[in-house]
Simulated assay, not measured.
Amino acid sequence: FRVDARPGHEDVRTGIWSSPAELAAAVHSDGDPHPDPLVLVCAHGRHDACCAVRGRPLAAALVADDPEGTWECSHIGGCRFAPALVLLPHGLTYGGVTPADGPAVVREYGRGLVVPGLLRGRSALPPAVQAAQHHARAVTGATGVDDLGVADVDSDGRPPGHTSWRVTFHHPDCVIEVRERFVEVDRPLTCAARPAGRIRVFDLVDTRT
């Protein structure tokens, strides 16, 4: 499978290769259109045991509904949110999805909807924009997969290295400003982590609708 998760370019293509030497050609060929979504569940226990312990039951619950489109996968980031779920081709990443909740999350995706309470963001967008989109969904109540397209980021020309962003969205229209900071924590963030660690958060600064 080759996936394009960029907004407006969502696409899944398939190809066949029988040896590593053929892989590059298979990836760069047009391939065959794959009409159905793909569901990835991180089960990479070597990277972090939590991903396998929590991810494999989630994958099993999803396989019951869609055995062809559900895949266990390697590390996708955000182990502290295990079990982690990725919905393709949109690249929607969910965290803390239980086996009981997983099938409903996937069914909503099939209807073109997200589940905001579990949604971590969209992989094709920068972290600050993902955070701004989260706040925009909370402000507007928008739950469509394609809602809140990004119209502009940092329209006021702030210099590189700044820690705040102003993001303009359309459908529905709103402007969200977020500020980045890091929070120190005195506990392991994942099964494999060692304290102390820190997490990045994006605080909501301002909204305009």
Rank of each mutant, 00 (worst) to 15 (best):
F1K: 13
F1R: 10
H9E: 15
E10N: 00
G15L: 13
W17V: 06
S18L: 14
S18M: 09
S19D: 13
P20C: 10
A24I: 02
A24Y: 09
P35F: 11
D36A: 15
P37M: 02
L38C: 12
V41W: 06
H44A: 05
G45D: 04
H47F: 11
C50W: 00
R54H: 04
R56L: 11
P57M: 04
P57R: 08
L58V: 08
A64R: 06
E68I: 12
T70V: 06
W71S: 04
W71E: 07
C73Q: 07
S74P: 05
H75M: 09
I76W: 13
G78K: 05
P83Q: 10
A84K: 04
L87R: 01
T93C: 15
T93H: 15
T93F: 15
Y94T: 05
P99K: 01
A100V: 11
P103N: 05
P103G: 02
R107S: 10
E108D: 12
V114N: 03
P116F: 08
L118N: 08
L119Y: 03
G121M: 07
G121Y: 05
P126H: 08
A131Q: 03
A132C: 04
Q133K: 05
H135G: 01
A142H: 03
A142K: 13
G144C: 05
D146A: 09
L148W: 05
D156Y: 14
S164L: 13
V167I: 02
T168N: 05
F169Y: 02
H171S: 03
E184Q: 14
E184K: 09
E184Y: 15
V185Q: 11
V185R: 09
V185N: 02
P188L: 02
L189K: 06
C191M: 03
A192E: 11
R194E: 14
R194N: 13
P195E: 07
A196C: 12
R200Q: 15
R200V: 09
R208E: 15
